[in-house]
Amino acid sequence: MRLSPLLAFLALIPLAACNPALNTGGPGASVSSSSKVTTDARIAFAPLTGPPQKIADALAVEVARGATSRGIALANFQDATANYTMKGYLSAVAEDDGTLVVYVWDVLSPDLKRVHRIAGKIMIERKASDPWSAVDDKTLALVTQETLDKLTSWLASG
């Protein structure tokens, strides 16, 4: 039996959140974009706003995989023990020279106040009548990499 991408993502969260091996150091240690996070912070991801469900599910799986490989401790959405919740927005817009993908993640405190914002954009050289059809796995991997690089840097800054 094959799990849908969303179910696969949901299955990864408790594993990552409960695995002490994924949390590899103490607060304040320096982090590069390729190293593991060294903080005790637990991150929950709220449902993504903007994209079609198929793309939201694919990005959720990519983010879970990337976060786990970086040692970011994940929590289930609405877990009261999460230090932060990431609320994400993703859009795809047709441009003259391709498709522009814009992402924004608000990092929320436990009382749901924004404490940090991560944002960026990626230009895809493909055009389509439906901009979402130009968004592929490579694009989602880039969104994930940039997001987690920025999150890792912010977490390391204390």
Rank of each mutant, 00 (worst) to 15 (best):
M1A: 15
L3P: 05
S4D: 13
L6T: 10
L7Y: 11
A8D: 13
F9S: 12
L10C: 13
L12Q: 10
L12T: 07
I13N: 10
I13Y: 06
I13C: 13
P14N: 12
P14Q: 13
L15K: 14
A16E: 08
A17C: 13
C18H: 15
N19F: 08
L22R: 10
L22A: 03
L22P: 01
L22S: 03
T24K: 01
T24V: 04
T24Q: 04
G25E: 00
G26P: 10
G26E: 14
G26N: 12
A29H: 10
V31H: 09
S32L: 10
S34L: 14
S34N: 12
S35A: 07
V37Y: 01
V37E: 00
A41R: 12
R42K: 11
I43N: 07
A44D: 05
F45Q: 12
L48K: 07
L48T: 15
A56F: 02
A56V: 00
A56E: 01
D57L: 07
A58R: 11
A58K: 07
L59T: 04
A60H: 08
A60Q: 11
V61L: 14
V63C: 05
A64M: 06
R70Y: 00
A73N: 09
A75E: 02
N76F: 07
N76P: 07
F77I: 09
Q78E: 14
D79F: 02
Y84R: 04
T85H: 07
T85F: 06
T85D: 08
M86C: 15
K87H: 12
L90G: 02
L90P: 00
A92E: 05
V93R: 08
A94I: 00
A94F: 02
E95N: 02
E95C: 01
D96A: 11
D96L: 13
D97E: 14
D97V: 11
D97K: 15
G98L: 00
G98S: 04
L100I: 04
V101K: 01
Y103G: 00
V104N: 12
V104T: 14
V104K: 13
D106Q: 11
L108R: 10
S109R: 03
D111V: 12
D111G: 09
K113P: 06
R114K: 15
H116D: 05
I118Y: 03
I118E: 03
A119G: 09
I122K: 11
I122Y: 09
I124G: 01
I124F: 01
E125N: 15
R126C: 00
A128V: 03
A128T: 00
P131K: 04
P131N: 06
P131C: 05
W132D: 00
W132A: 00
D136Q: 09
D136Y: 02
D137N: 13
D137A: 15
K138M: 10
K138G: 12
V143H: 02
E146Q: 12
T147N: 11
L148R: 07
D149M: 06
T152C: 04
T152G: 13
S153G: 15
S153L: 11
W154K: 04
W154D: 02
L155N: 01
L155W: 04
S157C: 06
G158K: 10
